[in-house]
């Protein structure tokens, strides 16, 4: 799996590319851990180029969600491919993740939440 990270607005956007399964999970965990240790706790996972996910990958995302929450950060997902989205529906993980159609929508939603929190 290829992971590139860019700082955008309130988030660090992780662009994931490839399969998210047992073999690639540790890579994502490490990358997230590095960011959390540096205080970069708001993370958006752009999954437009993730063409495959299984339960190992889902477990990694749930683990990441918990770590980000522990660090008092926020995590969201965006741009899921249709088949990947369907795996989220089957496992009902769409209920615990904030999932957006694209980055723009995620920025807008979290910008609004941030404004609401600070007002």
């Amino acid at each position: 799996m290829e992971i590139t990270v860019k700082a955008e607005e309130a988030f660090h956007v992780f662009h994931l590319k490839g399969r998210l399964d047992l073999t690639s999970s540790s890579e994502l965990k490490e990358k997230v851990k590095e960011h959390l240790e540096q205080g970069k706790v708001n993370i958006l996972l752009n999954m437009a180029q993730v063409d495959f996910i299984n339960s190992s990958g889902l477990g990694t995302l749930v683990s990441t969600l918990k770590e980000v929450r522990t660090a008092n950060g926020r995590i969201a997902l965006c741009s899921l491919a249709p088949y990947v989205q369907e795996i989220f529906e089957i496992t009902q993980l769409s209920h615990i993740f904030d999932i957006f159609p694209g980055e723009k929508e995620a920025f807008a939603a979290f910008g609004q939440k941030k404004a609401a929190h600070t007002s």
């Binding site: 299984n54 339960s55 749930v62 089957i90 009902q92």
Partner: peptide
Amino acid sequence: LEGISGRGLLL
């Protein structure tokens, strides 16, 4: 929903 494992058999 927040368990790390347990989804493989379901899938």
